[in-house]
């Protein structure tokens, strides 16, 4: 798999609830993108004082639209870089690197799957659901957020999900509570073999635990801040246990962003846990 650096152009930016939906025309990315891949965007133009790329899960792509090849993302304007993005208008240039990372692994057998998206972490779940159902895997969707404007993609979910479940912490839509409040029962009743998740680290940790408790594998797309997005800066590392039982600090950009939930040392994210390869002695 190889990433492309592409001089992209904004096709549209549309506010959606508390988020923005950005469509970028960029060549060389869409046809290689798989669910779970991300793009790394340069912020602020060629002379920008903001040097670090911002990484976003790919929401969807197209190779056949009237704008040529497009890639779409969803973002929240919560920092300096994303606030700049929130002012993007059609025709604005934006440099895109992608597709990057390891995508979600798909089951070989037609097993039932549950897909969990926290906030705009739901963005990659709809193309994933489509890919799963194309291979005969039922794809049950769980969308969760603090409150209704922070849910993303409910109408997509209703189109592609085998079933759709919504939670909000304030109860404004769906079940009051968190995704994990409905997840255990859902994995049980659907006899799911795999749980896919994308969202905040705390949610991923809880989802991985629920999946394991209910006998399912989990595939978690992590959200670590990155500087380059292409594997050269060693910024976005987290402790992950390999098949050999050894914990290594691995790059979420190229070794992830999707990891098996039972491999990530969630308790130790932000530290170098004892026994890590090359750790302090």
């Amino acid at each position: 798999m190889s990433a492309t650096q592409s001089a992209g152009t904004v096709v549209s930016r549309t506010p959606v609830g508390d988020y923005h939906h950005l469509v970028i025309a960029a060549e060389g990315i869409a046809e290689h993108a798989r669910p779970g891949h991300f793009v790394a965007l340069a912020i602020g133009g060629v002379d920008s004082g903001m040097l670090l790329r911002r990484a976003f899960s790919i929401y969807r792509t197209s190779t056949t639209g009237r704008h040529g090849e497009t890639v779409e993302i969803v973002f929240a304007a919560h920092g300096k870089g994303t606030r700049w993005m929130a002012d993007l208008a059609p025709g604005d240039p934006i440099d895109v690197v992608g597709p990057v990372g390891r995508p979600f692994a798909l089951p070989k057998e037609p097993v039932s799957c549950v897909l969990v998206g926290g906030g705009y972490g739901s963005a990659p779940m709809f193309s994933l659901a489509t890919a799963l159902r194309d291979r005969g895997c039922p794809a049950h969707l769980v969308l969760g957020a603090a409150t209704t404007p922070r849910l993303f993609g409910l109408s997509d979910a209703n189109k592609v999900g085998s079933s759709v479940h919504v939670t909000t912490e304030d109860g404004s839509t769906g079940t009051r509570g968190r995704v994990t409040d409905v997840l255990g029962d859902l994995v049980d009743t659907t006899d799911a073999a795999v749980v896919y998740a994308c969202g905040p680290m705390g949610m991923l940790r809880a989802v991985a635990d629920v999946a394991e408790d209910n006998g399912a594998w989990s595939q978690c797309a992590v959200e670590e801040s990155m500087a380059c997005g292409i594997g050269v800066c060693m910024t976005c590392v987290l402790p992950v246990e390999g098949e050999d039982g050894i914990v290594r600090m691995v790059r979420s950009c190229v070794d992830g962003p999707v990891f098996r939930g039972d491999r990530v040392r969630w308790d130790a994210v932000g530290t170098i846990p004892p026994g890590t390869l090359g750790g302090p002695r």
């Binding site: 040097l51 500087a227 910024t235 590392v237 987290l238 932000g270 090359g278």
Partner: peptide, 25 residues
């Protein structure tokens, strides 16, 4: 020898630059 580097966060954007504390991973 292999080296794990330092704990995250390892990077902070600053005006026209960045601070890093990778720690020679």
């Amino acid at each position: 020898n292999p080296r794990s580097g330092r704990a995250t966060p390892r990077m902070a954007e600053t005006p026209s630059g960045m601070l890093n504390s990778i720690g020679l991973q």
